[in-house]
Write a protein that binds this DNA or RNA. Structure first.
Lengths: 237, 237
DNA sequence: GAGCTTTTTTAACCTCATCTAAATTATACA
DNA sequence: TGTATAATTTAGATGAGGTTAAAAAAGCTC
């Protein structure tokens, strides 16, 4: 299963120090592209400051890196106007995301790590997993459809879900995926029982502040908009 | 199963670029320590030039790095006299080696990669696998005793084997492990059928050049000292 | 033990990816 | 439309880990 994700991913040289090389798609570049993709999914055109904040670096550093990414044709950068991934950048992001999600599945299903632990870990490993090896992993796992958080392994697949923050009161829904994968966030989500596959009843919504009263597993909870935004749901079929 | 390998391994920060930090046991340091350990197993006290050659860097770079390792108390460095791992360095090497070998097993047994491929790959992944996760991997694999090349998962375990280059003619032996894990070397070894677990008959030895006539699986081969040196054998029980 | 060779170390410099501080450019509002 | 504020970029450093070239120490050989 050679896949459609075929940008020249640079899996860094192994077994010798200082694998960094000039003008290559190295680990840092990959990390940025992945972050930018995620941001772009959330907000559309991405500002330098947003990249900086998301990547945990200073705006100055982000600015310099965005210039480099633009030179490499991975993003379109209009100075003072933010960026947009090019087709090439998007393709690379898809490739990385697929590897990332397969790695997460490997870590939960085979190694037995908890789902809230695997994201950070996969972030590091993904840079050293070539697409062909990802294919092998997919095979070994029986070609899973999603990562442990419910995101489709194939990043181009549209699962038809929407944000819980957009759901109307009085509906019964199915949790599809969680798109904030920070450990603490997932811990909270788990404490609510709001994991992929769970049934949620949207009991009511407040007219201000966007609070949502939900019912999961017979338990009532009130969640805020910040949480509801990253929980994706769908009509149960 | 908290193990006996408990040096403060620095698993670099995930999900953000530039994980390098001052004075920490980072990926590069780990790579050096592992390399030095392997060299030390082969040659005892290790010279700067040997480290440089093994790590694929200039002698100048190796010299500087050895000085740093000495400052970190991982090696004992007598200027112009080479180095020796300290107890702390040895312990770190053991820890890394255990993780490395478990990772290799994971890659062959679960992912289905060929045994000659996994070393390079494990070299990269090992730096991001904390000892507790290695414990999980060991458990998932059913606590294997060796890596795919036959090296004990527990680096302190003495398997009682010796080099095929030291074997006497006329003996029937069991291949225990291969300690040169370069892809091409392992490919050659495989083509001879000289894999861990195979039976070898040492037919004869030449008085000069150290050539060895062997019989594996009914096929005769002549191997040189460079190959025999990295094939370890034992009396079959 | 003098002088050549080899090994190791030091010196000076490079790239990558960060940083802070200062300078620009955009935006928003009076 | 001018000006305050916010966002972005540039300038100049830094640390890690390389490089080459030159200097220094050790080891041989006669």
């Amino acid at each position: 299963m050679r896949s459609r994700y075929d940008i020249q991913l640079r899996v860094p040289e192994v077994c010798r120090p200082s694998a960094m090389r000039e003008g290559q798609i190295n680990e840092t570049i990959q990390e940025y592209i992945e972050g930018i993709y995620r941001l772009q999914q959330e907000v559309g055109r991405v500002a330098t400051n947003e990249v900086a904040q998301y990547m945990g670096v200073s705006p100055a550093s982000a600015s310099i890196m965005l210039k480099r990414l633009a030179e490499m044709n991975l993003v379109e950068h209009t100075p003072y106007r933010g960026i947009l991934l090019t087709d090439e950048g998007t393709q690379l992001a898809h490739q990385l995301l697929r590897i990332h999600r397969l790695t997460e599945r490997l870590l939960t299903d085979i190694i037995g790590l908890p789902w809230n632990d695997v994201h950070d870990f996969a972030c590091k490993l993904e840079h050293y997993i070539a697409p062909e090896i990802a294919d092998k992993i997919a095979e070994a796992l029986g070609f899973p459809a999603t990562c442990p958080h419910g995101n489709p392994i194939d990043p181009t697949f549209d699962d038809g879900s929407w944000r819980l923050s957009d759901a109307v009161a009085g509906t019964d829904l199915l949790v599809i995926k969680i798109t904030d994968e920070r450990r603490e966030f997932l811990e909270y989500i788990e404490s609510l029982g709001l994991v992929p596959g769970a049934q949620v009843e949207v009991v009511s919504r407040t007219p201000f502040d966007g609070l949502i009263q939900i019912n999961v597993d017979g338990k009532q909870h009130t969640i805020g908009p910040e949480v509801a935004r990253y929980v994706w749901v769908k009509e149960p079929s």
